[in-house]
């Protein structure tokens, strides 16, 4: 071209949606909101308890048949400490991780609190030990996954 700056046409996607959660997730979230309980569903063929609750097991396409309450405590399987601000995501630093609650055969994702993030490297070394964690519920619950988060238990209980 003749040195003219390439033209940019502005654009913006700003659509709103309502996601239909389905009956199983509806019950899972109702239990969180109304009873502060974390519930799973059992696959009658494998016996596995899936948390969060699912209508069917993705691995074998088998419908789950039974609701099971699992413990509020479990093990932090994997984590990350987000250290940089990304547009549309919360202010850093924050921790997210997958936790296997006692009585569950799958892991559930949530935010993890109760660890000093003033030095991310130090915090990471602590979390690499896969500490025990406990679900802590908000006072004001609305039936969302953010109604609770995990808090690291420090009382000598690693693995």
């Amino acid at each position: 071209m003749d040195g003219t700056e390439p033209l940019t046409i502005p654009g913006n996607w700003n659509f709103s949606y309502r996601y239909f959660a389905g009956d199983t997730a509806t019950r899972f979230f109702s239990e969180l909101r109304d009873n502060s309980r974390i519930m799973g569903t059992r696959n009658p063929v494998s016996g596995n308890v899936m948390v969060p609750a699912r209508t069917f097991s993705d691995a074998d396409y088998v419908e789950t048949t039974e609701w099971v309450e699992v413990s509020n405590e479990g093990k932090l399987e994997a984590f990350s400490i987000v250290g940089t601000k990304f547009p549309g995501l919360p202010d850093p630093p924050f921790v997210l991780g997958y936790v296997t609650l006692d009585g569950a055969d799958t892991a559930i994702l949530n935010h993890v609190t109760g660890v000093d993030l003033s030095d991310i490297e130090v915090a990471a070394q602590e979390l690499l030990k896969q500490p025990r964690v406990k679900a802590v519920f908000k006072d004001q619950r609305e039936g969302r996954i953010t109604d609770f988060c995990f808090e690291v238990l420090h009382d000598g209980a690693e693995k």
């Binding site: 949606y17 996601y19 959660a21 389905g22 997730a25 969060p52 399987e77 994997a78 984590f79 990350s80 987000v82 990304f86 995501l89 919360p90 924050f94 997210l96 991780g97 997958y98 559930i108 994702l109 949530n110 935010h111 990471a124 979390l127 690499l128 896969q130 969302r144 996954i145 953010t146």
Partner: peptide, 25 residues
């Protein structure tokens, strides 16, 4: 997944980071 996971502020980078910590462990 907008039902169970999107609200936990996952990104493609944290998704990979979770696994990197598992490899370290």
């Amino acid at each position: 997944d907008p039902i169970y996971e999107k609200d936990i502020s996952m990104s493609t980078i944290s998704m990979v980071a979770l696994r990197a910590t598992m490899l370290m462990q």
